[in-house]
């Protein structure tokens, strides 16, 4: 627990808290854009950019690595869009391909980078699972600052996002620059993903964008309420996960943050007021009573075995 005493550690805590808030906010937008898994694809697609930035610069400067990651993530996003619109390959396959092929390229480059002088000590590997403890003060500043940028962008453009997500056609009629907003959203999404790479890691950062909004959905129907709750869940997971991972030496941060988020999800799933299992169970029972006075055969709840759509 020594880490708690240093002021650096407190700063790390603040930065993962801010990261969680940013991820929770932008994750809510992704959820309503029906692109939850997009963040996963982008996170993996960022890896080659990080390693290339290191190879070019030969030092681990977080800002430069983030720029590299952002560019590579955006290229990944563009490729997914391109495959989707110019071939008969479906969404999910396009994402899966970009995710894994870019990651493969990243690993190729990482192996090469590790052979370079000083490469082995670069700690580039920590980007895969995240190591918040490895962050220096400058990293913390950069990360917090960028997280604040994302948070502000989501909050200030609140009503524009709302229109974009629920009725883009109507928004266009009002003169909303839909194309620009979509592009801006993608940039923010990539940004939120890449600033989390060092603390949470390539593989799990997507979860910090996916789990909080899904959990928030169990408590509220309003978009604003979902944004606030999702941000809170994200921030809480970021801070608590970092704290726990600091208790053991060499424990990766990312997995602990995600397990914290998952615990919040489980709580929401069971006790959530809007769609929680408990509430739904009670509702279902009342519904059936009103539908039929007769006793119900016990096998009513079998989920349909047929794929929907």
């Amino acid at each position: 627990m020594a880490i708690l005493l240093s002021s650096n550690a407190q700063w790390v805590l603040v930065s993962t808290f801010l990261l969680g808030i940013a991820a929770g906010l932008i994750g809510t937008l992704s959820y309503w854009k029906q692109q939850s898994l997009m963040s996963d694809a982008l996170a993996h697609a960022a890896l080659p950019g990080i390693v290339l930035a290191f190879i070019v610069l030969r030092e681990k400067n977080l800002l430069v690595l983030i720029i590299g990651a952002t560019i590579s993530g955006l290229i990944g996003a563009f490729c997914i869009q391109w495959i989707r619109s110019f071939s008969r390959i479906k969404d999910d396959a396009a994402m899966g391909m970009i995710l894994s092929v870019f990651f493969g390229l990243g690993i190729m480059l990482l192996t090469i980078a590790n052979r370079l002088p000083g490469g082995n000590q670069s700690g580039l590997e920590s980007f895969i699972f995240g190591q918040a403890a490895a962050m220096v003060k400058q990293d913390v500043y950069i990360m917090s600052l960028l997280a604040l940028v994302v948070i502000l962008a989501v909050v200030l453009l609140f009503k524009e996002w709302k229109l974009l997500l629920f009725d883009p056609a109507f928004g266009q009629g009002l003169g909303l620059p839909i194309r620009f907003l979509n592009g801006f959203y993608t940039v923010l999404l990539v940004l939120a993903v890449v600033i989390g790479l060092q603390a949470v890691g390539v593989i799990l950062i997507a979860a910090l964008l996916i789990i909080p909004p899904v959990s928030a959905r169990y408590w509220t129907h309003s978009f604003k309420g979902m944004l606030v709750l999702s941000a809170l869940f994200g921030g809480f997971s970021g801070a608590v996960g970092t704290l726990i991972s600091a208790m053991g030496s060499g424990w990766p941060t990312g997995p602990f943050i995600i397990v914290t988020a998952a615990c919040l999800f489980l709580t929401s799933l069971i006790f959530g007021l809007e769609k929680g299992l408990l509430v739904q169970y009670l509702l279902h029972r009342r519904q059936k009573r009103s539908v039929s006075p007769k006793p119900i055969p016990p096998d009513w709840g079998m989920p349909p075995k047929v794929r929907e759509g």
């Binding site: 939850s36 898994l37 996963d40 593989i203 799990l204 997507a206 979860a207 996916i210 789990i211 899904v214 990312g254 997995p255 602990f256 995600i258 397990v259 998952a262 999800f265």
Partner: peptide
């Protein structure tokens, strides 16, 4: 997204 990241973590 919820399930696999959690189990993996």
């Amino acid at each position: 997204g919820v399930v696999f990241t959690t189990l993996f973590a």
